[in-house]
Nucleic acid binder design. Structure first.
Ligand SMILES: [Mn+2]
Ligand SMILES: [Mn+2]
Ligand SMILES: [Mn+2]
Ligand SMILES: [Mn+2]
Lengths: 141, 141
DNA sequence: CCTGGATTTTAGCCTGTGCTAAATTTGTGT
DNA sequence: ACACAAATTTAGCACAGGCTAAAATCCAGG
């Protein structure tokens, strides 16, 4: 039999907790990509205003993102995405867009869908995302 | 014009943060109601095994829930829901059930839908919940 | 070049949510 | 009655992610 399995055996709720741990990373890399796309570079203040948190909070969050290999930055410099960060940003943006379109397709107003999708996106598994995509193709009028 | 509005003006992301703050309360009162329903009373250990966290974590979480008026408990005693707690439990269970059924209705397998709904439920606004309900009635075969 | 405003960093605080180890309490079976 | 097992509580730790105030740095206009 497999060795002792002390490892927390990913039940439902551990999945939720790990989703929460990565969702800030997802939102940040997505936002960083958008800001860079729109204005060339991304500074901490841009993220602070976007997320409505203090610039100090952004600074420390960026530190964690750098530690975990999503972004690179040097003192007083802008934030850039690593290759890994760019990939996550692309994946997150794509999934976010599907969720948003899907909510609107079932009749949720855009203003509400924008808010709800921002939270829902992080908990949508690949299988559920596929179901949403399938729904969108079927109902492409 | 209205005075200065320093008040953080609930953008998209503050909604997400407040959702996260209440989701443990929602999951706990829902679980407490279920355990009481199933076995008469609810003890901390029941919640620890259900959420796969330590009994110490449960103990402190229950303390916060009591502080916020969702549950009542006395030293070494079981956990009971306040009126407010029962109401939240009912609302959360109802919403959770709708989300789960909805995911299955769009073709997500039950095992996956159970996991995803556990995270998604907390970010579904009343309007989106209504859209899901409407979808379920329309597609009631 | 130098200075003032914008920006970032540092210091120091808080709460929530996770843990282990140890102490305490409860309640049950003999 | 009492010991023992189960449950809870306490103590003490860690990290994420919020904040304000103050210091440091950067850069652009004069
Ligand atoms: Mn997103
Ligand atoms: Mn998001
Ligand atoms: Mn639930
Ligand atoms: Mn849940």
């Amino acid at each position: 039999m497999p060795h002792s399995r002390k490892r927390r055996d990913q039940g439902k709720h551990s999945r939720i907790r790990s989703d929460h741990a990565t969702e800030i990373a997802e939102d940040y890399v997505e936002a960083i990509a958008e800001v860079i796309e729109a204005s060339g570079t991304c500074r901490a203040v841009d993220l602070a205003s976007r997320f409505e948190v203090s610039h100090v909070t952004v600074n420390r969050t960026i530190g964690r993102l750098a530690r975990d290999g999503w972004v690179e930055t040097e003192p007083y410099g802008p934030v850039v995405l690593t290759a890994k960060g760019k990939q996550l940003a692309r994946k997150a943006a794509e999934r976010h867009a599907v969720v948003l379109k899907f909510l609107m397709a079932i009749g949720v107003r855009e203003s509400v869908a924008k808010i709800d999708s921002e939270g829902i996106e992080h908990h949508v598994s690949p299988e559920t995302l596929d179901a949403m995509r399938a729904f969108l193709s079927e109902h492409a009028d």
